[in-house]
Nucleic acid binder design. Structure first.
Lengths: 355, 355
DNA sequence: TTGAAAGCGCTACCAG
DNA sequence: CTGGTAGCGCTTTCAA
């Protein structure tokens, strides 16, 4: 094998300077077609595949990949249906320009800053991160375009999200209109710690996941507006998986008197709630109503089909991707755009008046 | 803002050399705790987040991300359930070591080599690529560890796959045992071009997607073994989506006499076949039997539940991830490992004896 | 149209 | 324990 093949190798072989070989790749117009052909031929012969991208990036500052930052372990990106759908949309959004996407996981306990900087992305999408997360601070300090999706708010960067508050209101109004008075809420994690269980007012006030804070706020507004005392509403906090959702729902269901409706703040959790009801022999929606949030594909095929707040997840991803592309060419001092996508209540078979 | 902050900036501020600041980050043991603290303090004050990863990589040759190469557009990675599950497993497999994963799309017409080299991954997983694909050649020329999943075979690198031939045999034996004699086959693309439609012997012989070649080979073996003439078996080739599967199945179903069974070579296609039967008013499995391959989650919940060849997709991903990690530390001259995972026929409700 | 020279920011080696 | 020196492979003025 011998030495590594570099620009210099080819330059020596052809008898020109390094710069000329570089031009052969980057500015074909600057040299004669004949010379360029000779250079390319020599490159092929030496097995030289073109300028080293790392070195090029060091010089130019750009490398052609965009990143997406999560607060969960890497496999979460492929396990959570909402996340997968978002990423599909995001990929479609950035597709015109880039074919490389780097997923950056920033789970608790990782070397977050190193990972982010090591990804060396030209632009990054912050996907649903808690406030005050080291990763967000790192990205914001990176001097690359950033688009924030869902959370956190107030970074002064481009933002794409949905109207979470409104979603909460819609669910609350729907349930109140059906006549429910005893309601339990199943929320995804409110902070980046690993606490689960019942949620008190203090915990709620200190919630750093904007999304759920707002959904709960909207719900509260609608419920109190309908004359239901917020103090009577029990909250359970769980990790966003079906299994944990089932556990949380079971806890809610064990209260006396039993709630007649469970508001899950994600569809994953709602699916778990459905399973918990089944396990407890409770009919949905006969004895317990269940609502979700997001409208993932599984919500439609659930038994019974889930009443849920639909958000345009794929579209949100595409918007985010396009926003990132826009930020990449834009003047750095342009005011960042904020996109808030609408939500919609989809009433299916999991809600009914209380018996 | 002024100048960019580099190692040198900090070195000047503290009054030490660049090398010492570098050591403060990379080899804390090599300098006094007191000096290191002073350096870190100065860095914090100047807003220096640590050594530039690109420059570091240029020097060290490693950057801490692993790549996965596909032959489809980027959003495919998140649209195909099998691919998503594979990636979930892969992520789990590499998780102990890396938190960054770069997805490299090499769809037809893209600047494949540039994209791959630009990803600058420390190791790459080639995921189900056709033989003779420019991307594969590029990766193989990259001087980084490689693991090939599913396809292509014979690269001389680590390989993880399943027993595709055996899967084909299982389906063929099952259908023959049920008494089917008129069988149609719905295959995913056999080559990387965009041709779809009926597949003749010549096309089949030139199939460059090993996976489907083998599945068909196994099927053929079982069928001819049961006395069914291969010449009577019609094949339709489509892109691997539910919609295209439906179109292909419709074509198969329009033959006279109508086949009594459709063998789809992926679950996606099988789901499409189910839809086509429904649209044609054909009862499954009463009038037509349908089989799939892969056993994605939707196969279980399909109507009727799909008889299919289950492959351990998640496990395959995890194995691939672990193989990549192993290759990263291994001596370069160790013989590459080949892992072939078993498949299993799962009989559900979509197959029955012909009427 | 071509080439010489000057770095991009960093780390490895070796001498002090 | 510390620092000087020599590049990693490339692009980009600027001058010829």
């Amino acid at each position: 094998m011998g030495q590594r093949v570099t620009l210099q190798t080819i330059a020596d072989a052809v008898g020109v300077s390094r710069a000329t070989v570089s031009n052969a790749y980057n500015r074909p117009g600057r040299l004669s077609a004949e010379l360029r052909a000779r250079i390319l031929a020599a490159a092929a012969e030496h097995g030289y595949a073109g300028p080293d991208p790392v070195a090029r990036r060091l010089r130019t500052g750009r490398g052609g990949t965009v990143g997406v930052l999560f607060t969960e372990p890497l496999d979460y990106a492929f396990s959570d249906p909402g996340c997968v759908e978002f990423l599909a949309g995001f990929s479609a959004g950035v597709r015109p320009v880039t074919t490389n996407l780097v997923l950056i996981a920033a789970p608790p306990g990782a070397q977050v800053a190193d990972a982010i900087r090591g990804a060396a992305a030209d632009a990054v999408c912050v996907y649903s991160m808690p406030e005050h997360h080291e990763g967000v601070a790192t990205v914001l300090g990176l001097a690359v375009p950033v688009v924030v999706v869902d959370m956190p708010a107030g970074t002064g960067r481009a933002f794409v999200g949905i109207d979470d508050h409104r979603g909460g209101v819609l669910v609350g109004e729907h349930l109140a209109a059906l006549g429910h008075r005893r309601i339990g809420v199943l929320t995804s994690r409110l902070r980046a710690d690993d606490r689960v269980g019942a949620v008190g007012p203090d915990r709620l006030a200190r919630a750093s996941f904007r999304l759920f804070r707002e959904r709960i706020g909207g719900l509260r507004e609608a419920l109190t507006g309908a004359g239901i005392a917020w103090a009577d509403v029990a909250l359970q906090e769980r990790r966003n998986t079906t299994a944990e959702g089932a556990a949380g729902a079971a806890a809610l269901l064990s209260a006396q008197p039993r709630p007649t409706a469970i508001v899950a703040l994600t569809d994953q959790l709602a699916l778990g709630a459905l399973a918990a009801c089944r396990a407890a022999g409770l009919d949905v929606p006969g004895q317990v109503s269940v609502t979700g949030f997001d409208d993932i594909a599984a919500a439609r095929t659930a038994q019974p089909p889930l009443t849920t707040v639909a958000q345009p997840t794929y579209l949100k991803g595409r918007e985010a991707g396009q926003a990132l592309l826009a930020a990449l060419d834009a003047e750095p001092d342009l005011p960042p755009a904020t996109t808030v996508l609408p939500v919609e209540l989809v009433v299916r078979g999991s809600t009914a008046p209380p018996s």
